[in-house]
Structures are given as C-alpha cells and as structure tokens.
C-alpha cells in the first residue's frame, strides 16, 4: 500500500482544479500522486491533516476525478482508496467533504 501525506509530500497549500490554476492543483495531485500506484494495481492511503486548508475544487478534482477516471465502484473505493484524518473537527470536515465528492463520482460511474 502506498501512503501519501498531502501536507508533507505534495503541498501544505492544496488549491485549484487544473494545472493552469496553479502549482498545487487537484489535477497535478491526481496525476502525479494518486494515479501511478492505482494504475499499478496498488491501493493508496491518503493523509489529509496538516494542510492550511483545502479548496473544494482541489478535493473534487483529485478524489472525485480519480474515481471517475478508474470507474471505481463504492467497493473499489473501500478497498483501494483509504482516507485518513486526525481526530479534529476541522480535519474530519475535510474528510467528510472528500467522501461526498467520491460518493458523487461513484454515482456518476453507476449512471454511465
């Protein structure tokens, strides 16, 4: 399992959706950090705590985007994309929001 700490390994300022939006965009995180291990059949554990915050565009593009790209079902997400956050109300709110984007993306995949 590949473990990724966003604040330490990617950026403490994760914002923006696409590459053109800025250096710490969701698309860059998805393509450079999430997709390679998932494409290799590995599972990923992502630590959300420690950043200055998250832009909603970042969360949707990174996590909703990867679920759409690999056409994951809820079961796939449960097995291969594990999200971890500290036991702190703010970090937990980011976790819950990310889970919402993932659930939305899974629903999209089911419709297609």
């Amino acid at each position: 399992m590949k473990v990724i700490n966003i604040a330490k390994e990617f950026s403490p300022y994760p914002v923006g959706r696409f590459y053109g939006d800025g250096p710490d965009s969701g698309q860059r995180f998805r393509e450079e950090f999430l997709e390679p291990p998932l494409a290799a059949g590995d599972s990923v554990e992502v630590h959300l705590s420690g950043t200055e915050g998250f832009g909603s565009s970042f969360l949707d593009e990174a996590f909703g985007g990867v679920v759409r790209k690999f056409k994951f079902t809820n079961e796939d997400v449960r097995k291969r994309l594990i999200l971890v956050a500290d036991d702190d109300p703010v970090d937990q709110s980011y976790l819950n929001e990310t889970l919402e984007y993932i659930a939305d993306a899974c629903r999209d995949n089911q419709r297609r």
Binding site: Y13, V15, R17, D21, G22, E52, G53, G55
Partner: peptide, 11 residues
C-alpha cells in the same frame, strides 16, 4: 475558511 474563500476566488 479564509484560506478556502480566497483560494476559490482565485481559482
């Protein structure tokens, strides 16, 4: 929230 508001406006 400050972080999010400002950065989403920039996005």
């Amino acid at each position: 929230s400050f972080f999010r508001g400002l950065t989403e406006a920039m996005t």
